[in-house]
Simulated scan of single mutants.
Amino acid sequence: MAPATEGPVRVEHLVTSGTFSLDGGTWDVDNNVWLVGDDREVLVIDAAHDADAIAAAVGDRRLVAIVCTHAHDDHVDAAPALADRTGAPVLLHPDDLELWKLTHPDRAPDGELADGQELDVAGTTLTVLHTPGHCRGAISLYAPGLGTVFTGDTLFAGGPGATGRSFSDFPTIVESIRERLLTLPPETVVRTGHGDDTTIGSESGHVREWIARGH
């Protein structure tokens, strides 16, 4: 009998819906949930809103980790339930622990993310880039072997993420994007926390426009 094939490493995409709450306001949102892996193991980026739907997408594969690009509630609300179901660790940058506790005061993340840390799944490596500004512990995940970067809410199609709420800072997000993201190859696909994909090259001009406007 031939050995079972693992299949090529691939990026899978799921959209889940719920709410985002902070600073006394609540908004309806659709979130991108990203899965990176092959037929045997997978990593989830941002367990948003619906643990059942994400678990169904994982299927019978081993879930290596649940990586949080940041700790806004719409990106982490389903993380503990998914972790309990699968046994996978929840990983978060420690600078976002205060924000995490607003959603999960009685359940800490299982591990920390650090700038330069490498996460391996299905024979590919994702490197953690600390990209604060949208919030203090925001990170991006760069996968050069896949030609893509997962930016959470740091960089979108059209410019930087929002910085008008607690834990955020506009000059910091601009520096993160300019120094950590725009230095990646221009053809790198940007997979965001909400909305459509873009590329590093496409966003270079948009970010310069935002800097000139100062917001």
Rank of each mutant, 00 (worst) to 15 (best):
M1H: 05
A2I: 11
P3Y: 09
P3Q: 09
P3F: 10
A4M: 12
R10P: 00
H13K: 12
V15S: 08
G18N: 05
G18C: 06
F20E: 01
G24R: 10
G25C: 02
G25T: 12
T26S: 14
W27G: 00
D28N: 09
D28A: 13
N32A: 07
N32W: 00
N32E: 03
V33Q: 02
L35W: 00
E41N: 12
V42Y: 01
L43D: 01
D46Q: 14
D46K: 10
A47M: 06
A48W: 03
H49L: 04
A51K: 03
A53D: 10
A55I: 07
A56F: 00
A56Q: 10
A57N: 05
V58S: 05
D60Q: 13
R61D: 06
V64P: 05
V67K: 02
V67W: 00
C68N: 15
T69F: 01
D73M: 09
D73I: 11
D73Q: 12
D74L: 01
H75K: 12
H75T: 09
V76Q: 01
D77P: 01
D77S: 15
A81W: 03
A81E: 13
A83W: 00
A83R: 07
A83N: 02
D84K: 14
R85K: 11
R85T: 07
G87S: 06
A88G: 09
V90A: 06
L91G: 04
L92I: 07
P94G: 09
D95H: 13
E98W: 03
H104L: 12
H104K: 14
P105C: 09
D106S: 14
R107Q: 08
P109F: 08
D110G: 15
D115W: 10
E118A: 15
E118S: 14
L119K: 14
L119C: 14
L119H: 08
G123D: 11
V128R: 02
H130N: 14
T131F: 04
P132R: 08
G133L: 05
G133Y: 01
C135G: 10
C135Q: 12
R136F: 00
G137I: 08
G137E: 03
A138S: 15
A143I: 11
P144L: 06
G145D: 12
G147S: 08
G147M: 07
T148N: 05
T148D: 01
F150L: 15
T154Q: 00
G158S: 11
G159K: 04
G159W: 01
A162H: 13
T163C: 15
T163R: 11
R165Y: 15
S166A: 14
D169T: 11
V174S: 02
V174A: 07
E175Q: 15
S176F: 01
R178F: 00
E179D: 15
R180C: 06
L181R: 11
L182R: 13
T183P: 02
T183H: 06
T183S: 08
T183D: 04
P186L: 08
E187P: 09
T188F: 01
R191S: 03
G195Q: 10
G195P: 09
D197A: 14
I200C: 01
G201R: 03
E203L: 01
S204T: 15
G205I: 14
G205F: 03
E209D: 15
E209N: 11
E209K: 13
I211S: 06
A212S: 12
A212F: 03
G214W: 09
G214D: 05
